[in-house]
Write a protein that binds this DNA or RNA. Structure first.
Lengths: 347, 347
DNA sequence: TGGCGCTTTGTTATCGCTAACAATCAGCTG
DNA sequence: CAGCTGATTGTTAGCGATAACAAAGCGCCA
């Protein structure tokens, strides 16, 4: 119906003109204000549909001082766990009407962390979830000041930062107790890097389970989460199995994550040690493919969706009331028994 | 000092007052305008630092009509490949001064895709990268109209959408030719779901390599990318190895991704078939742990950083000039030979 | 039928920035 | 030394929404 040639997106004013009302009435319809006559509301809706109007988020953000955007800073996003958590966070945020801006860290230096947070601050995010399960990074985070609330995921509960974390300690105890209950004299451990909060929790859980059972804890081995490091640890375990006498040789190992467990399995296989007959092996994470390792791996499963939801809940709460007391949420994991610790052979 | 008690973030006006200039001069300093006296510039910089001023992105976006935000819509973000690409995109975007808003799809329906794009549109993103390597999703995408430019990653080059893709076809040919060069009479194939663009490319590459070598292509097996489906295919391969006569039994398999290859390896292991002596196995993707499979897996490596960079380049170009001709970028993969096809035994 | 109170709608100011234009100042030129 | 030019700075007008207030419309009672 030939108005002037409109070159760019229609504004609220355009809708108002089309519907024969003021722009404020359009705003009221959009925000669901009750005091608008039904027929008017209808007319405005039609005009919106007709013109294909979309509210301008920048204008709204300017006047309301709310960007409805949350930031997520994460390290190691290519790994299954962080990637799943990220997806969980995004879904939870979207359900609550927030956009998620993701920043992935390739290194965990304080500088990189600061840059990531500055980047997000420059876009006016209302809050940030930080997933850097590293002691140093979390400590650095606690030292900084931010123009928005911050919540950690797997950041530990020691510092004065609200956060969500899986109960690594309990998960590790579950695995260790499971192995002991199978009759193993003791349980060895391939730990992750100790600066990682998860690694520390799993280590402590392993050790306390052994202590409580009155069992001597063997020296633990160290890895860096990678299959490669697990392979090296597995070589050592195989050597220990051969070299030590009957009573003290390793017959059960709790490996701190599934990737390293994969490396351990391969090293044991190369040394012609049978799993679980000679050595039982358990991991942590429950990668989707853990069921297809040789043999299928017993492990601990985390509920990433729950973690993501809890993280967003905590953050939104914090945004509503920044003065609220610091809260910590703990998610309980689940033990999955498969053939690598004597569970059913078939998948 | 003691001005009035300031409760919220300082504005450009506050900085201007502090520096004794007009807000416009502050704006000029911030945008690097040349015509500002050095001493003034210095004074403004000091005032900015003193007050801890941060530009308000909403106000800037409102007047410039640019949000400096890009969207990424991705499926299967928990898998290594998509997760790596996402990280690559994010880094590239950040280098160019853009924020990345991520939306992860849990299903590939047209509705879900549309909702994801609407969600991003509501925040005024300037462009979107779509990573849904599914024929149907890309076709649906091509049918929609968007208020911003769209670029695909692994979306194929058939449609009139600019995009980046790995050369699946060539990668598959490289693997297949490698296996043939080892003296195998033919090469079997465990394919991914054919609606997936990558699966189709790998399938075609495999078949054409066999054709060019004048070799009869055996019936291919189908999987769904998961280790579970690879395991089932592996069972079939093992049965075929036993059941068929010498000349036609499978001695080499190209599996369409590493996860399925893992399942194949396990099934073959359970059937007491040796890899690579009885059957050589190759995958596609080069997962970080592929080197620690039993045996280490020959596979095809993709440069995800390059893919991400190319995707962002293409998108920014498109934002600058929406009328520019549709461009397609192809990234060449790399063959990695390991012990599963007779490469070195050690990792 | 005048007036009170509720619903419905419109008007104006404002958020914090950039763009466009205006004004000032200095140095040079003729 | 008036006038022109270019560098530097300031002033004003939006961008497109929401918030606060003002005004109009309507039903109902005394």
């Amino acid at each position: 119906m030939g108005e002037v040639g409109d070159r760019h997106a229609p504004t609220m004013e355009d809708v108002a003109r089309e519907a024969g009302v003021s722009h404020q009435t359009v705003s009221r319809v959009l925000s669901g204000h009750p005091n608008v006559r039904e027929s008017t509301r209808e007319r405005v809706r039609e005009a919106i549909a007709l013109l294909g109007y979309r509210p301008n988020s920048a204008a709204r953000a300017l006047v309301t001082r709310r960007s409805r955007t949350l930031g997520v800073v994460a390290a190691n996003t290519t790994l299954y766990g962080p990637a799943s958590t990220l997806a969980g966070l995004e879904h939870a945020a979207r359900r609550s009407g927030y956009l998620v801006a993701a920043v992935s860290l390739d290194q965990l230096s304080e500088t990189a962390l600061k840059q990531a947070l500055d980047h997000l601050a420059a876009w006016g995010v209302e809050g940030v979830v930080v997933m850097t399960p590293h002691q140093g990074a979390v400590a650095a985070l606690a030292r900084m000041t931010h123009p928005f609330p911050v919540v950690t995921v797997e950041g530990g509960h020691d510092l004065d930062l609200p956060g969500v974390a899986l109960d690594q300690y309990t998960g590790a105890r579950m695995v260790t107790e499971h192995l002991l209950s199978l009759g193993h004299a003791s349980v060895w451990h391939v730990a992750g890097p100790r600066q990682w909060i998860e690694a520390e929790g799993r280590f402590q859980g392993w050790r306390s389970a052994l202590e409580d059972a009155g069992v001597h804890a063997p020296e633990h081995l160290n890895g860096d989460w990678s299959a490669a490091s697990g392979y090296r640890a597995g070589k050592l375990l195989a050597a220990a199995h051969r070299g030590l006498e009957q009573g003290s040789r390793p017959t059960a190992v709790f490996v701190a994550n599934d990737h390293m467990a994969l490396g351990v399995l391969r090293a044991l296989g190369e040394a012609d040690l049978r799993v679980p007959e000679d050595i039982a092996v358990a991991g942590f994470d429950d990668l989707p493919e853990a069921e297809y390792f040789s043999p299928p791996l017993s492990t601990v499963r985390q509920d990433f969706t729950a973690i993501g939801q809890a993280g967003i809940d905590l953050l939104l709460q914090r945004i509503e009331d920044p003065a609220a007391p610091t809260r910590h949420v703990t998610i309980t994991p689940e033990l999955i028994v498969r053939h690598s610790t004597g569970g059913p052979r078939a998948s």
